[in-house]
């Protein structure tokens, strides 16, 4: 075999292994998470799960000890903060009871059918990703427990992520903080919709398309995305939104779930809505789900589409177009 005189054996092996690595990367990317890579991943994860279970059982007390130790330093501040919160919560409780009563009355009047309680599977986090850039968690429930890919995962605070791969015993959950994740959300207070994008360990970015929307600190963002049940808390706005070059409003928000310190989670047995749902990841502008309870405005059809749309003819351009891009109305057919 030809080999330049200046390349010694270790360097030759190194170059060979780099080429093999690049070929593997290319093959795996072309397979888009399926094929031989997926089979190998499932096999290795299945073999490695018992090892992880044993090591997790052994190291959990050690980790908890150090965790408790680090928590002691923040306990005093937490105590003071919690006392204030209790006072605030007591006040809110009184308000909530009153609101609850009103909501019950209104529901009765409107005859609303509330969605049935979703089934869920409780799981514990078994392992984390191998690197700091791997925003995923391995949970100790898998296909044999009824978990399938795409199921939403929540904790007591709200949305944690969704299942991206599953073996017979464990499942991998991609966290909402992953930079490749985008979740369509709605501001609970106003009903305005936007898109939330993960940024790793930093606060998530919220982008609102309506530049007139009022987004204030403390606003709770809930799911408005066909991949998740509607109304799950996702994040809390940290700063009032500000307009960026007039196209959208932007601000930052932190997840309501303890994403970096989750231990027990609930996997919701939820099959995604098949209507108009695409994989939102890597899309520039994911589709926003229009609230079903919005009554069609005058001049609109039941689907909320303008019924009197006229396309610009060149004369009196824009006349009759109700602020919608003709291409999106589907009225051209």
């Amino acid at each position: 075999m030809w080999r330049p005189a200046s390349v010694d054996r270790p360097t030759g092996v190194f170059i060979g292994l780099i080429i093999v690595s690049l070929v593997l990367v290319t093959v795996d990317l072309r397979a888009s998470g399926a094929g031989i890579g997926a089979t190998l991943r499932e096999g290795v994860q299945t073999v490695f799960t018992p090892v992880q279970r044993v090591v997790a059982a052994g190291t959990r007390p050690v980790a908890e000890f150090f965790e408790d130790l680090s928590d002691i330093f923040s306990l005093r501040g937490d105590n003071r903060r919690l006392r204030d919160e209790v006072i605030d919560l007591e006040r809110r409780l009184v308000e909530a009871e009153s609101l609850e009563h009103r909501v019950a009355e209104l529901e009765a009047i409107l005859g609303l059918e509330l969605p049935e309680e979703l089934d869920s599977i409780v799981a514990q986090v078994l392992a984390v990703g191998v690197s700091e850039f791997d925003h995923s968690r391995v949970i100790d429930r898998g296909r044999s427990d009824g978990i399938t890919v795409d199921m939403p995962v929540v904790d007591e605070g709200g949305l944690v992520g969704r299942v991206v791969s599953v073996t017979s015993d464990v499942a991998r959950v991609r966290l909402i903080t992953d930079p490749s994740i985008r979740v369509a959300v709605r501001i609970e207070r106003t009903g305005e919709t936007g898109v939330l994008t993960g940024r790793g360990s930093a606060p998530m970015v919220l982008e609102m398309f309506n530049t007139d929307a009022a987004v204030v600190e403390g606003d709770i963002l809930i799911t408005a995305d066909g991949r998740f049940p509607a109304g799950i808390p996702v994040a809390r706005v940290l700063e009032p939104a500000r307009s960026e070059v007039g196209f959208s409003l932007r601000t930052i928000a932190e997840p309501t779930a303890e994403v970096t310190r989750i231990d027990f989670v609930r996997v919701l047995v939820f099959t995604r809505d098949q209507v108009g749902i695409q994989d939102l990841e890597d899309l520039e502008r994911p589709p926003i789900i229009i609230p079903a309870d919005q009554a069609p405005a005058e001049g609109e059809s039941e689907e909320g589409l303008p019924t009197d749309t006229k396309f610009p003819t060149g004369e009196g351009e824009g006349e009759g177009v109700t602020g919608q891009d003709p291409g999106t109305t589907g009225g051209g057919g």
């Binding site: 990367v25 990317l29 991943r41 490695f48 191998v130 995923s136």
Partner: peptide
Amino acid sequence: LLSQSPLGLW
């Protein structure tokens, strides 16, 4: 194989 990164990157 134990992560979601492309096979071969690590």
